[in-house]
Nucleic acid binder design. Sequence first.
DNA 1: TTAAAGTTTCAATATTTATTGAAACTTATT
DNA 2: AATAAGTTTCAATAAATATTGAAACTTTAA
Lengths: 167, 167
Amino acid sequence: MEFKEAKDQFLQTWGALGSQWGINKTMAQIHALLMISPDSLSMEEVMEELQISRGNASMNLRGLIDWGIVYKEYKPGERKEYFKADQDIDSLARKIAIERSKREIKPALRVLADVKNFDDNPSNEAQKFKMKTEELYEFVSKADTMLGKIVNQKENWITKTIMKLMS
Amino acid sequence: MEFKEAKDQFLQTWGALGSQWGINKTMAQIHALLMISPDSLSMEEVMEELQISRGNASMNLRGLIDWGIVYKEYKPGERKEYFKADQDIDSLARKIAIERSKREIKPALRVLADVKNFDDNPSNEAQKFKMKTEELYEFVSKADTMLGKIVNQKENWITKTIMKLMS
DNA sequence: TTAAAGTTTCAATATTTATTGAAACTTATT
DNA sequence: AATAAGTTTCAATAAATATTGAAACTTTAA
């Protein structure tokens, strides 16, 4: 496969993977592009390479900065902003996990905590509901704790986790 | 909060959570509904409770059966099909993890394996690309292995994983 | 203080994804 | 073999999401 072809296919695939794991397609593609670029890129260059509009580039670059996985860079003497991706994949995955826990799991937990304390009544249906929501609350809460423990192992967390799970 | 209100809010929240974690909103809602129902439900009952069309109910129930987290049940003397959800949350999460690995991670890995062996050339850009795609391949591959190890601990895998990570 | 370079915003539009509903199909019953 | 009960399919439609592009805004420098 030619370099250009490989690169395009990679950007496509990483975009699809990203959109399945919580960041949108364009965001994932921009991130992928920055990750494989030897130098930081200007917005123009990102637009050109991915064939997207200025507005799209601007919004998604901001999104990436909000996720904390892309940084602005100013080149001396130049007015343009340049963008570069965090190069450490471990830290990338860690940030995404933390962010998703904060944005999705924690709010859902708050609701679960809330509904499981509804005004009880002795019907079969209500009892089953109580049981299941309590169970689900425990489960989601533990899953979130597990996620936290996994990503809090600094440096090579995946390898470390695999090791610990070997036993 | 009244039972009815709590129930509706729960169905909403579980639907939203589901759609962020890989199964679509209606599917997650149907599953949630079946999970909290003391008895198995007919398609009619699901349609009624969630206010969705017959086609929608039919397709998403099939989807749930494909995921292996909902089962058909036939009541003696009755012609209708009834549906019930797998009651074990651990096994539910395990099945989703396995299925997503199969549907999303493994195919992406195949592409990564492919592109990282592109026709090399000595340019800066190509070298960086080679390095990063190899790194990403390693990472995704390890992450998938980790996921596999976590979900393969039968019974209370989350608790077990937390335990092992304590050290 | 004006113009130029660059960035952001957001209403309009396009794309993608989910849902409906009615016809076609399947299976059981008389 | 005709009818009724139930289910599935899928083209049409609706809803949700993403993208564009041009105007408004910001910053730098002459």
